[in-house]
């Protein structure tokens, strides 16, 4: 089987598994909804800048939970089985694509709910959506690789947080800046720098993970 076909099969497998249990989608959605609600109840009045930052912090934790399961929750047996039938390259690419899809769906739903609850209307909704999609893409590329590292290192959740926070902070900073531009309805040409930077970070992270994952995967 060539690479593209392997990737397609592996993504199908992930989607099928997810469709059967609906664990990640429901679990993380419930998490997002309840966190948004808790925030709504605890903040009496907030300005838009805080709300924007809050949205990304909620999404950060949601995506850590959603994406970390991609490697951490796979049993040893299943890992060995996949190892024998698929190339590591196909595995990392398919996991990243699947996670990106999952995160994009989650982010869009969460954003809709957030706007509904907080009456939080960005001036430039189109740009905000672009930022949200780029954000979920970056979260998934970075967290997929970090969760692979954490799962190989043995002790899962704790390590995942320690390893991923310093890496995700630059992305988060750019994202918050970009979405703030979108909220204030600035001219779109102002935000081109941030969009370009996010794309570059994603390309860098993706190529480094594709290069490194084969070393990580073979034991």
């Amino acid at each position: 089987m060539n690479l593209a076909e392997q990737i397609k099969h592996l993504i199908k497998k992930e989607l099928l598994l997810e469709w059967r249990s609906k664990y990640a989608l429901n679990g993380v959605l419930l998490y997002v909804v309840s966190t948004v609600f808790v925030c709504f109840l605890s903040f009496v009045s907030t300005d838009k800048v805080t709300l924007n930052a809050l949205f990304w912090i909620i999404m950060l934790f949601a995506s850590i939970n959603a994406v970390s399961k991609s490697f951490l929750q796979e049993s040893r047996g299943r890992q060995v089985y996949i190892y024998t039938i698929a190339s590591p390259l196909a595995l990392i690419i398919s996991k990243t694509i699947y996670n990106a899809l999952l995160m994009m769906v989650l982010t869009v739903i969460a954003l809709g709910f957030y706007i509904l609850v907080f009456d939080f209307g960005p001036e430039d909704l189109g740009l905000y959506m672009v930022a949200a999609l780029l954000g979920s893409l970056s979260f998934s590329t970075i967290f997929t690789m970090v969760s692979a590292i954490a799962s190989k290192a043995g002790n899962g959740g704790m390590l995942m947080a320690i390893l991923s926070f310093p890496i995700i902070i630059p992305v988060l900073v750019v994202l918050i800046k970009l979405t703030k531009n979108a909220m204030d309805g600035l001219d779109r040409s102002v935000s081109l720098d941030e969009i370009g930077l996010l794309l570059i970070i994603n390309a860098l992270v993706m190529s480094v993970s594709v290069l490194l994952f084969p070393y990580l995967w073979r034991d």
Partner: peptide, 18 residues
């Protein structure tokens, strides 16, 4: 050695951006 080397290389481009 292997896993920490991978993390180190993975983190370096991010540090440059930072």
């Amino acid at each position: 050695a292997k896993i920490s080397a991978i993390y180190n290389i993975f983190a370096f481009p991010i540090m440059v951006v930072l």
